[in-house]
Design a protein around this nucleic acid. Sequence first.
DNA 1: AGGTGATGGTCAC
DNA 2: TGACCCTCACCTG
Length: 275
Amino acid sequence: MPEGHTLFALARDLHEAFAGTRPVVTSPQGRFEAGAGEVSGRELLHATSRGKHLFLEFDGERWVHVHLGLIGTFTVDAREWTAEAAAVGAVRMRMATDEHVAELRGPNLCAVVTPEEVTAVLDRLGPDPLRPDADPDRAWARISRSGRSIGELLMDQAVLAGVGNVYRSEVLFRHRLSPFTEGRAVRRASWRLVWDDLVRLLPLGVATGRIVSVEEQVLEVEAALGRGERPRLTERTSAVYKHAGEPCPRCGSRIRTQVVAGRNLFWCGRCQRRR
DNA sequence: AGGTGATGGTCAC
DNA sequence: TGACCCTCACCTG
């Protein structure tokens, strides 16, 4: 489900399946009919992501800009599975070659845009921890000047791109940071630890398709990937997210929840005390 | 069968 | 701050 790691993996899968091909693009649901007609039969040059945004670059300076929102899904399958996959839901965009088919359902946004519009979107996004060239100081410049809480700032895609509601709660827990600390009260060293942790965690999300943030599991996944094995995840993969009322895995105090920046935030009131 | 919440974001007020 | 978008999995009965 869609935080930055989902979009990164999706861009990778779409690129592998379709880059260099001329897929037939349609909109069975009808709401992307004109856009589909504009790109259908053109060569797909690149599929990339930035934060939670997905971009498909087609020949002729036509880009498809997709945002899954909360409920969108985008599947990429080998051709023979398509009939089954198409049976469920309204498909906003369908992209097909002889080899592969991709189906987009329930996105917040799916539109054909110009290169200038792509640039405009990228310009208002903060650094994405999944990109090697991302600059954490750009995020720090905003955080260190802000009177908003770090719990709000982490969700602001203009501050940094790709972190969503799960990674927000989990990364704050991992660093014992109170979600309610003002940005300007966060120490630079703390921010760098958070950033470096996201740089470590998000690729594990890409590799496993799940958000793994409990340290023992993080280590297991890293070890499995290091051995070239597929990690198996059984136990709970989040420390505090969606565990309101349960004991904190670190100190046993009750995990709390509160709506911050419009979404349910989870934290331990003892481990993550405000300084 | 029907209701609800969900890893998101935008826009109106 | 709240309504809305829109699909699906999971719950209740």
